[in-house]
Design a protein around this nucleic acid. Structure first.
Lengths: 265, 265
DNA sequence: ATGCATTTGTTCGTATGTATC
DNA sequence: AGATACATACGAACAAATGCA
């Protein structure tokens, strides 16, 4: 039997803090550790894993950066398991877009298929209350255009836009579409704001957007799933096709055509 | 003027290690720190940020968990900025999917749209080498059936199956499709293994699966994206439709029909 | 409502194995 | 081959603030 803890091992097979991280990650993934539960206190973790407090703290900082736990200062009850959040995915995705490791066409293509499916499902499952909520979102978008659109109004417009899509995703009843769609739309928005948004004719784009949303609403109201799906793909193609390379444009075109959509306009 | 570093501040505005994390994150996002570059050594970071060694180490562990840097032991040149990877997104996504009690229809519906899109893109972008790799995966699946399929053979079959889909996703050239597809397929597999897998007629299912993969390969070889996409939706519908409620079955049917697919058989 | 005990955040010091120079 | 420098890991200490009796 080897020494339990070689005090000064330079590069052990697995670092001390990683054992703790994996243990907690596994417990959360397996469901034996649920949001609201408390982890043992730092000093108790020291005893339980047989490592120094520094190692325990490193593990806690990593788990904290993953938004899995949160250790509040001076709380004797120990670190608390957090409610599951899309924060880490969003941040990692944001970093990838910032560093150009994720391209605009990749984001847009993915958004095409997610938005289209969300619309399709919403057309089947939507309730009348959700229909009215969608109408209110469009009204918010219209209201944001009344004054000559300044910076604040553009933010409000984007917010209403996102709200519209989130209601649709929720109406579709698929949590994956909901969560993933939210993440993707945010990433697209951030990337767009840094690239083509400033140069274009803002009011015209906003008007076109309102028209598109109105058409989607009508399709969902009529419970015409295929049309709602097609509208999403067509409008995303119309918005972004000119900003991508030919190969990616061809793929986007295929996504539009495969569901009987048309290109142009 | 307050003391520069109150040695025992319990809840500072921003924790010591967070300052370092944000600084490095920002530098990488801004592009002033590129993959391959070196960070200052731990001791130099101590001097530069005016914090203790432990804090520097906590920051490095967090940055390491984000796969942004990697500090190798005994390297006088300091931690190295890593090439940008989709690893963090994949891990966060996997954690999110394992914690978010997801139903079978939700997983299958999402897999329908992701697999279909992956096939579509692969049909456009695939190289001949990737085509041959797909053939090898199917051969592996066939080989796993030769002996009367026991447990180990089933694992090998599943592995080859996943490999087939991963090659397709890679050929499509969209990293998001790749990452999301990988996570979804693993989640579906995990759920299936716990539910319907044991009861069914294994060899028949495997044969049907091989037939399906062969058809997809042919469509991708012919560069027929719509057909490749349709095949994915049809076969997933055929596999899982009977195991879901009517409402979800209707949505799955819509996904098949919207791209001109057929239901049944 | 008050006081005590506990816990966290932070820092400093020390030992050790290893890779680079 | 030797010396240096580095990262890993452990332990102890202090200030502040929280939670519980």
């Amino acid at each position: 039997m080897t020494t339990a803890r070689p005090a000064g091992a330079a590069t052990p097979d697995t670092r001390a803090f990683q054992r703790i991280v994996r243990h907690v990650e596994g417990a959360i993934a397996a469901g034996s550790l649920k949001p609201g539960d408390r982890l043992p206190s730092e000093r108790e973790l020291v005893d339980r894993f047989g490592v120094a407090r520094s190692s325990v703290r490193e593990a806690l900082r990593v788990l904290e950066s993953l938004e899995l736990v949160r250790s509040t200062a001076c709380d004797p009850r120990g670190p608390q398991v957090q409610p599951f959040s899309t924060g880490p995915v969003r941040r990692s995705l944001a970093m990838l877009t910032s560093t150009q490791a994720l391209s605009l066409p990749e984001l847009v293509q993915f958004r095409m298929i997610v938005d289209a499916s969300a619309n399709l499902m919403a057309a089947i499952r939507r309730t009348d209350a959700q229909l009215r909520a969608l109408e209110r979102s469009i009204a918010r978008m219209r209201a944001a255009m009344e004054p000559p659109p300044d910076g604040a109004a553009r933010v409000e417009f984007s917010r209403a836009d996102l709200e519209f899509h989130e209601i649709i995703a929720e109406a579709g009843g698929n949590q994956l579409i909901q969560v993933y769609g939210e993440v993707i739309r945010e990433a697209v928005l951030r990337l767009i704001e840094r690239t083509i948004s400033a140069a274009e004719d803002q009011p015209a784009l906003m008007l076109r957007s309102i028209g598109h949303h109105t058409a989607v609403l009508a399709a969902i109201e009529a419970r015409d799933g295929p049309r709602a799906s097609r509208l999403a793909r067509e409008s995303l193609y119309a918005y972004y096709a000119e900003h991508v390379e030919p190969v990616d444009r061809e793929i986007m075109a295929s996504l539009v055509l495969e569901c009987g959509g048309r290109i142009g306009g």
